[in-house]
Nucleic acid binder design. Sequence first.
DNA 1: ATGTTTATACGAAAAATTTCGTAAATAAAA
DNA 2: TTTTATTTACGAAATTTTTCGTATAAACAT
Lengths: 144, 144
Amino acid sequence: MHTKTFVRFKHTFLMAEKTTHIKPTESELEILQVLWQHGPNTVRFVNDELSKSKETGYTTTLKLMQIMHEKGMVNRDESGRSHIYSAAITETATQKQLLDRFLDTAFRGSALKLVMQALGNKKTSQQDLNEIRNLLDNLKKEEK
Amino acid sequence: MHTKTFVRFKHTFLMAEKTTHIKPTESELEILQVLWQHGPNTVRFVNDELSKSKETGYTTTLKLMQIMHEKGMVNRDESGRSHIYSAAITETATQKQLLDRFLDTAFRGSALKLVMQALGNKKTSQQDLNEIRNLLDNLKKEEK
DNA sequence: ATGTTTATACGAAAAATTTCGTAAATAAAA
DNA sequence: TTTTATTTACGAAATTTTTCGTATAAACAT
């Protein structure tokens, strides 16, 4: 889908084509994960990867990827007999989208609560904790 | 669905009714949010709340809440004419569930990436940042 | 009492997502 | 060449989620 939004900028209004609303389903996300992780690949490869963690029929994966192509979620190279699919949206952009939505629906928008849950529940490595600490320091500096 | 799990406690094994696999759909989650935020309430109230942010028919909300009741996701008091629904699962337990799942599907399990996105994207308040810092300090102390 | 509003129950349509079977084409193997 | 395997295309069934219409009963107002 496609939504138009008004965005205030200085003293003018601009139309912003919001390419938002990439809303991969759970299955689509699993496929994107494979493509992000391993780069452009065939349906066969993706299906083999998915098969490692769950039952999945070849034509099911194929159909899903064809649909994703229709939606513009993946590109495909049709030059060879087996088509090569690649993600058309970046991992971080998608994560940002999903996170925003998730934050709203699950944590009523409170990033604090989400972060605390994420850190509290899981045993996070010492190194990761340090990285977060650095990020915090940077954020502090930025707002002078 | 309902699963039973063994939980080790001291030197004994106990059967724990794990209300695991609560997988509220997006609509169900919206309803739960209202119940968590405002406490036990009627379908009418919940529907009015939802109506503030989106189109929603009364019987639609009713049906959803009835289904949620069947699933054991909410309790209801049928003593009066208008039934009073209340959340049967806690907000934090549900958040933990959803977060775990979300972490896997969207961030491939990396709490670090998720946290950094959450903090990086959104402008988090100074106070929130401090709270996180405290949490980090506590986590540091705990592992001696 | 009679009509109007407001509830629940419930079936079933509508929409979205996922799974699968089969046909047709191409490549590879025998 | 002839079979066998692999691939895409595609329709449609199966599932899940969401929405809605209608019947029925209770409460309320006139």
